[in-house]
């Protein structure tokens, strides 16, 4: 006889069959007995399930890890690089889908470095959130001149939200010292105005605070989706065992935003907005920061310059 149908095999598997001839065929047919065995195992597995499984969703960051890994791969293909990071656990704090610039930076780090960095930044953000910028942090501005502009009362630092990837940091400077270093900034910032050449909006030389030695320059250029601030130094700055951070300080001397981290010896491009510049965040400052969980400006400014209005 021909092989029984799937339906008939189910009946046999669950013991609801009443045709001895079919049973005899299945017993002597490898294909059919394997099929029945498979159905029995299915029924057995169903019998072992509880009606409800306590489903547990993975942590929220797992999807970000998936997209980060896929984007890293996509970038690698685009750059025609060999793909060596397929199994790297990518920095989950970076939403790489919308920010290719950050991608590149993340990818070039070692895994341990990225993890440590993520932790530092996480802590920094937590501090910023918790502290709200009221944490008084005395800046160590080297050789701050005695020129003090009249700032009447210490105002709490205000943090401006740039966007997700710029790790804004609350800065609570002693107002007098801010004003003092600000004056230095104004003095050393030798502005070069060259409007509309290659999308260039403004350029300024960056100089040391003490000796006013020129050490680099910052250029504001028009980018597809806003403005980019390009920062380049003449010689690699010494970050010691810390890192270099680029800030935009407001001309009022009371507010500042962090716009990113500069790798020593490299130039950096930091997206900024027109609104930020219009609000007076025009003083470019490169500081030396420690991995110390303190989100505020360390006060240790290496180079500074004011963009011309």
């Amino acid at each position: 006889m021909s092989h029984p149908s799937d339906d008939e095999l189910v009946d046999l598997a669950v013991g609801e069959a009443d045709d001895p001839e079919r049973a005899a065929h299945v017993a002597g047919c490898d294909t059919c007995s394997a099929a029945v065995e498979q159905l029995r195992r299915t029924a057995q597995l169903v019998s072992g399930t509880r009606t409800y499984a306590a489903w547990q969703a993975p942590a929220d960051d797992v999807w970000a890890r998936v997209t980060a890994e896929l984007d890293a791969e996509l970038d690698a293909e685009t750059d025609a690089e060999s793909d060596t990071r397929t199994d790297t656990r990518t920095d989950t704090r970076t939403d790489t889908r919308t920010d290719t610039r950050t991608d590149t930076r993340t990818d070039t780090r070692t895994e341990i470095g990225a993890a440590a960095d993520a932790k530092t930044r996480a802590d920094a953000e937590a501090d910023a959130d918790a502290g709200g910028g009221t944490d008084a942090h005395t800046p160590r501005v080297a050789d701050a001149p005695s020129v003090v502009s009249p700032v009447t009362a210490p105002a709490p630092a205000t943090v401006t939200r740039l966007d997700r990837r710029t790790r804004r940091r609350a800065a609570g400077w002693a107002a007098g010292l801010v004003a003092a270093s600000l004056v230095v900034g104004l003095l050393v910032g030798r502005a070069i105005w060259s409007p509309d050449t290659d999308g260039q909006v403004a350029q300024v030389a960056l100089s040391t605070l003490d000796t006013r030695q020129r050490g680099g320059e910052a250029t504001l250029v028009r980018a597809a989706d806003g403005l980019d601030l390009n920062v380049a130094t003449a010689r690699p700055l010494d970050a010691g065992d810390g890192y270099l951070e680029v800030w935009l300080i407001n001309a009022d001397g009371k507010r500042m935003v962090s716009i990113g981290v500069l790798q020593p010896g490299e130039s950096g491009t930091f997206p900024v907005t027109q609104a930020l510049i219009e609000q007076g965040y025009v003083i470019v400052d490169i500081s030396k920061e420690q991995f110390d969980d303190k989100p505020a400006h360390s006060g240790d400014s290496l180079l500074r310059g004011r963009l011309p209005a």
Partner: peptide, 17 residues
């Protein structure tokens, strides 16, 4: 009932396959 058991079990078996 028989029809539900048949189709249901076959469907589940296919998933396991």
């Amino acid at each position: 009932v028989k029809s539900h058991v048949r189709r249901g079990l076959i469907e589940l078996r296919d998933r396991l396959k």
